[in-house]
Write a protein that binds this DNA or RNA. Structure first.
Lengths: 213, 213
DNA sequence: CCATTTTTGTTATTCATTTAACAGTGCAAA
DNA sequence: TTTGCACTGTTAAATGAATAACAAAAATGG
């Protein structure tokens, strides 16, 4: 019945596929045409079994003697994780973090483009920052509707997280990546991914401390 | 034999404890003295069972009728995840991302301070940026040794990740948080946490696309 | 032509984490 | 008193993810 045959692929596999693709692009640029599972594994510092298992899940078969064809694999990963018509992304909060993401990301992915930025600071709004036009948040609903943006990245200060998420949801955003230290809530039909940078630092600090003893 | 009684606490619990503490601080500032597991849960948008289970793991008992004492709990979490003598952190790469982390983080944690920044860009080095002194990377080994820095955050461009990690490890860094799109390798005695922002965005995009159909 | 090597694809197992189930406790109201 | 309620703390089950184990295939070298 369901035609979304990929629903049961583990979240972690999806993340790794994105990383495989990046590594494969680099290999292809070097003129490589084929690659073994253990080569991919060593690029990402994971195990070859995990690579093969991930590729099994997406139904790609390599050649027994030559490994995987890089171009085919890149294409297949694209078929799986990209949307053929492309997807637009908006950044909420054009501070350092928002701009860092723009610089890391923009232009690297054919099917995923950062299309708009939003901020409340009048010094930032109504002009282009790092190649992205920055609107005042009041325009968010309009712009997001008109552009058909479905993905939003939240990089505002923690105390503005909740109100900004409400705006995003109202405007029709269906996937949010929250980099704010404040956990937020969204309706069931909105996919939410939270990443708390402060917790990550504290976690590293904890394991450093523990190893020492 | 082992006196590190906390070695078997799940990684995910450590992350949440850091988040509990943040939420508890906010509650304490509002004058609250006690809190129930379901209140903490709703602040973080998780379940009350999970909160109770985490607190059980660190051996804290609340009162049946009044819930948990906020001050006691904050103190206990601190005893667990903080290092009593404090820990110093260095940022490698003082671009937008490095500065975003400084601004999110600095001054928020008593026992964890960002002490130095490093960069290769001469326009950034040998001066204070966002309150942190930025050294040229050549000075890294010296400074890290002298300051006793054990934790490093990697925010350089992807193509400089490997060489920078080597410098960090040589200098004596024992915990690395890698925000670069490039996976890196470290010796066994160095704790490594990788976070790939690009994968996260692609993951959100994937689940948005899938939900649509 | 057969044994050896190398690699893939898949199933089984183990490990980690979350969720569920429920016993125990103390207060409050009848 | 005692019944009900709203909690906590803990054990048990379910889910999710990584790792291990191994069969099958194809090239290579004797």
């Amino acid at each position: 019945m369901e035609n979304n045959r990929y629903k049961d692929i583990p979240h972690k596999t999806i993340e790794r596929l994105s990383q495989y693709r990046r590594a494969l692009h680099i290999c292809a640029d070097k003129g490589k045409t084929n690659i073994f599972s253990h080569e991919i594994a060593s690029l990402l510092h994971i195990t070859a079994v995990q690579v093969r298992r991930d590729l099994m899940l997406i139904g790609y078969s390599g050649s027994l003697r030559k490994g995987y064809n890089i171009n085919d694999l890149v294409r297949l990963i694209g078929d799986l994780i990209d949307s053929p018509e492309g997807q637009k992304v908006a950044i909420f909060g054009m501070g350092n973090l928002g701009r860092a993401i723009i610089n890391y990301f923009q232009g690297k992915r054919e099917k995923l483009t950062i299309t708009a930025g939003f901020d409340i600071n009048p010094e930032k709004t109504n002009r282009v920052i790092d190649g992205i036009y920055c609107y005042p948040v009041e325009k968010a609903v309009d712009v997001i509707h008109k552009e058909g943006i479905k993905i939003g990245i939240l990089t505002v200060p923690g105390d503005q997280a909740d109100e900004t998420v409400n705006i995003m949801v109202d405007a029709g955003i269906k996937g949010i990546l929250n980099y704010t230290p404040t956990p937020v809530e969204v309706p069931d039909d909105v996919y939410l991914e939270e990443y708390n940078m402060i917790s990550s630092i504290e976690k590293v600090a904890f394991y450093v401390k523990e190893n020492k003893s």
